[in-house]
Design a protein around this nucleic acid. Sequence first.
DNA 1: ATGACCGTTGGAAACGGA
Length: 258
Amino acid sequence: MKISSWNVNSIKQRLDHVIKWLGEQKSDLLLLQELKGMEFPADALEEAGYKSFAVPQKGRNGVACLYKSDITDIALLHDHLPGHDPDDEQARYIEVKIGDVHVIGIYAPNGNPVDTEKFDYKLSWMGTLYDHLKDLREKRIDFVIGGDFNIIPEDKDCHDPAAWRGDALFRPESVSLYRSYIYLGLNDAYRIFDKSAEQYTFWDYQAGAWPRNNGIRIDHFLTSPRMTDALLSCTIDKEPRGWDKPSDHVPVTIELDL
DNA sequence: ATGACCGTTGGAAACGGA
């Protein structure tokens, strides 16, 4: 089972990239973040061999889960983070069940600037996600969670740690919440296979960040214990960042021996 | 060249992103 995640920064602008990439990678599932609009090209994706569950929102945010058309034992469980304010319209969460495994896709809040309510919202959302992941663990449900966490886990996950120290993505309060997920017994799938590499998933459009490799690793897959045992690989594909009119994020993929 | 962005909304320039 091959599961990928990609913040595409507008599905409308990136549809051709997604179809091209899936044609090469042939992932079974692809979690998408930042659809950025109510129009979701379900028909075009189905022509490319993928059905979908989409949670769109006007103008910003938006998540989806694409799955190969021949997969039948899949169902949408949640289109909203359980326990989070039901009146909040921000589309940041999707949870599906494939067989007995839950697959969660998230677009966690950015949280900048840190002296505003946006940072409080980030911490609150991440705290509610902790409660839900804890609940899944207590129920002994096998799951993987992937997406744009908007968290830089460690110094080696950014080009210039000093420059990021005060940012919402790297503040101690934020990283502490991310680590609380790890303390539930989850693993950062990428670090299972490469403990030391500096490998990024996001490069800003500005200031020549991509040619300078001034990036950050903020797109992650976390696996519950039995899913960690089943992990075969975790790869970050930098290539699409060099394509014409790219997203500022690149896809991450895990392979599981289920 | 020490940096000059990108996408959506709405129909210009503000906002969000990270």
